[in-house]
Write a protein that binds this DNA or RNA. Structure first.
Lengths: 337, 337
DNA sequence: TTGAAAGCGCTAACAG
DNA sequence: CTGTTAGCGCTTTCAA
């Protein structure tokens, strides 16, 4: 922060006014080619770097967006965050990281801080955003997009995957490999993703004679949730031979639980997850999953948000990405095609 | 950003000058109790919120720190980031996330951007910070701390764990459970952590008759690195019965590699990792590891940095945290005590 | 204790 | 095409 040259220094050295310097800086307004050359040269000589804070104050744009997510430690989010940060960086933006732990209170307090800091927009990958907050956000004219969560009314811009179709793919896959009784461990029903996946499961299996509502047991979208849920599930239905877990983390918990019980995967029970986090490749056996393009979702969220920021576009929109089934050992039975 | 009240509005409503409002805002300078009351009341009435950008421009402090790390997708970093963000948030700071991919170029360009944005300080968890950059950083008077990486000269403030002792613990543990020939897969030797762990291994085993330099094989600190290294290792030394991997990710790769070869862990080969990332509990078998207090390291880094920012302290310092061995199934042999 | 006023560094009318 | 000037909202001397 020593003698950082200012726009005024540049102006003086180039023999022009600060306005002109500002113009070449922002490439707006008319400016003579020669004058521009002089200014550019002066900038180089002084190693001038525009002060982003001053710009922010004057122009109300800081080149900063915020990412509010529940917890960066949850393995789903780092890849998402990476996609966001990469895209943001590419477009000249910087990303502020906020962990909300899904507490509305924390989220609100973040929003307040972020607003004071003139962040240009917010990406919500957090769950708690309630109806009221959404309304408030919309009013505040602070651009935002919602990742992988939907709000009641379609008034927002949402980026997500087709969870319903993905769930159907998962269940169909289990049927295809010959499962005769498939259970589902579902996530928190406040989350649209969890609801959609549950719906996909139910729609696919409800015609079967073995179908029973008790085949759907609740989990928490966490490792422990899967571990516990599988216990309960096997108590109720010792004869299940296929489990579709609502997300990968729970599926990993399921694998662990089955391992402890000495149940072979996939031969006795096949397991399929959802999300496509990288842990699925590290797990043993490697986990079949319905993969979301997590990184791409993040990148798209950032791109969409930044476009909104730049254009002032305020319309809602839905960006839905495709999922794809990745078969691995957890559904690769030794006996059959 | 509608009619956000400004300090002037408050001043007017309270019937005082902006200077006075500023004083009560910052709790500095003298201000009459009664006057203060009036001001506070006016603030409340107007729901006044100070503008952080304006403050930044005027005071050169933005309440923002940056975290530069190689890649948030690497499972070691999310927990670290969480520790940092939590501490920062507690202390009223906001965190900018930067992925450098260990490319010096990216790192430099981030530093430049961050400086323009008046970030108050930087946490480096990245590897590439070269001697020159460090010198430059020191000159620029921008406070910074280095996490888990050390630079040649002890001129910086560094937060890290005792990697050397940790490595000795790991190897000693393998000896204790009866291993007769222990190998080490080491990480990139540019990293002090990797070097220290290698040193800890070597010092502990070099007195044994079975010791051989070829028992130390290089890995990359990534999953694949472990997977490949174990291949080579077993080619050279089919009779190893204990492997100390330089970090958990490589240890997981080792587990995978051994699984593919049909080698039983821990009965034929025991495996120990280093770091204590949460994946070690998800792995199968669960991985014994020398756990660093990752979250705490992050929190401490943020705290130390923010203290530097607030006090202007510019002295170097070394903060070393303790590691601890967590024994799990990957070193729990069935036959022996 | 308080206020006036000069910035912080840049943007954006508005004149020329 | 270019310069002047008034802010953006807050901090901080310097006087009073």
């Amino acid at each position: 922060m020593k003698g950082m040259a200012t726009i005024r220094d540049v102006a003086k050295l180039a023999g022009v006014s600060v306005a002109t310097v500002s113009r070449v800086l922002n490439k707006n307004g008319y400016v003579n080619k020669e004058t521009e050359q002089k200014v550019v040269k002066a900038m180089q000589q002084l190693q001038y770097e525009p002060n982003a804070v001053a710009r922010g104050l004057a122009g109300k744009q800081t080149g900063t967006i915020a990412l509010i997510l529940p917890d960066i430690s949850n393995p789903f989010f780092p890849e998402l965050a990476r996609g966001i940060e990469d895209a943001a960086q590419r477009l000249g933006f910087t990303v502020i990281l906020c962990n909300s732990d899904d507490q509305g209170q924390k989220e609100k307090s973040y929003i307040e801080v972020l607003r004071k800091k003139y962040v240009d927009g917010i990406i919500f990958a957090s769950n708690t955003l309630g109806q009221e907050e959404v309304v408030q956000m919309k009013q505040s004219s602070l651009p935002f997009v919602i990742l992988d969560r939907a709000v009641a009314n379609q008034v927002c811009t949402v980026i997500r995957c087709n969870n319903y179709e993905g769930a159907k793919m998962a269940v169909q896959h289990l049927l295809d490999i010959g499962c005769q009784k498939i259970a589902h461990i579902y996530g928190p029903q406040e989350l649209i993703t969890a609801r959609e996946r549950l719906r996909g499961y139910e729609e696919t299996v409800k015609g079967f004679p073995w179908y029973s509502p008790s085949l759907m047991v609740p989990g928490s979208f966490r490792f422990d949730g899967g571990l516990q849920a599988v216990e309960e599930l096997l108590r109720l239905h010792p004869d299940v031979d296929g489990i579709f877990a609502g997300n990968d983390l729970m599926a990993l918990g399921v694998l662990k639980g089955l391992k402890r019980k000495g149940i072979a995967v996939p031969d006795q029970i096949a397991v399929c997850g959802f999300d496509g986090i990288s842990l699925t490749e590290i797990a043993e056996p490697e986990l079949t999953t319905v993969a979301q393009p997590i990184y791409e979702m993040g990148a798209m969220a950032a791109e969409v948000l930044i476009k909104k920021i730049k254009t002032g576009d305020t319309n809602p929109g839905l960006f839905e990405l495709e999922v794809r089934l990745i078969q691995r050992d957890s559904t690769r039975k030794r006996v059959r095609g």
